[in-house]
Amino acid sequence: MRILGIETSCDETSAAIVDDGVHLVSQVTATQMAVHAQFGGVVPEVASRRHVVDITRVVEQTLADAEVTFAHLDAIAVTCGPGLLGSLLVGVSAAKGYAISTGKPLIGVHHIAGHVAAATLTTQNQAGVQPPFLCLVVSGGHTELLTVDESFTFTRLGGTRDDAAGEAYDKVARLLGLAYPGGPKVDQLAAEGDPAAFNFPRAYLDDEGFDFSFSGLKSAVNNELTKRRNRREAYEVRDVCASFQQAVIDVLVEKTRRAIAHTGMSRIVCAGGVAANRGLRQALGSLGQELGVDVVFPPLEFCTDNAAMIASAAYYRALHGKFSPLSLNAYAQLPLTAWQSW
């Protein structure tokens, strides 16, 4: 089954063709990173305007690279939420335009389901994995812990109650005056700093649950910096980065450890843009060794937002005959469970 996937939930206009959920045939992504960098963050209206201009060209190039036409496709898939509403609507509108004019079935895909499905994609260098597995999704917009069973059905264990992990990274980067997008820079500096220099709080919340909270951590960093600046005390930026990162990682790893114990899963997938974080990779790798579980990181190209993961997730929907009507909408907020029940 050959599916065209479209992803426009934030600031990347991406299209991809994926065969049978695992084989990437072609993918084209127009990134707006440089455009938004001058604003110090993603400006939703600017993102939406760019998506409109880029969408058909990106799809055209994706088809050309795969040497196929619309007639060769079996379905059109698109991210329908969660994300920036204006951005999502461009992708959803275009996807419905393709579906209605070609008669191909439409599949609305949950963005997080896409990040999870990224682990099943196979590239030249890395074979995809098949469920069941435990999945930790960490990105600029999301921090979710969930399980995926053989039929690709999700069970959500927990998620962030406020800021996503990636969001906390970007906010701390801004506090430190690092240019947008600052998350990767914090990771870079953290590698050279002392993770014990500052004792930032770890919000484990209640002992039983799997929810996260990172806004308190961000505030603690802010308070510490303000205090030092007021007293004119010097501090090492890299030590702040390292200590902050350690606090984030400790929480992510501890919750993952508990989730493994709770579910008995023998494989963890870490997906989403923050899966590129070196500190997190090391920590989860150690956890895997300690507990004897398999730790999988999808190839980096499928960790950041991309359309291949959307086409992949759509495949499992198609297998269950779950197609979307032409009245498919876009949703800034969309609980995974709500989407799953469609």
Binding site: S48, I55, T56, F70, V90, S93, G97
Partner: peptide
């Protein structure tokens, strides 16, 4: 309306491309 007008533009462009 910015959001509104983009729906017709994105849908129409996609249809014209596919057809």
């Amino acid at each position: 309306s910015y959001t509104g007008v983009r729906m017709a533009v994105a849908t129409g462009k996609a249809m014209a491309q596919a057809l």
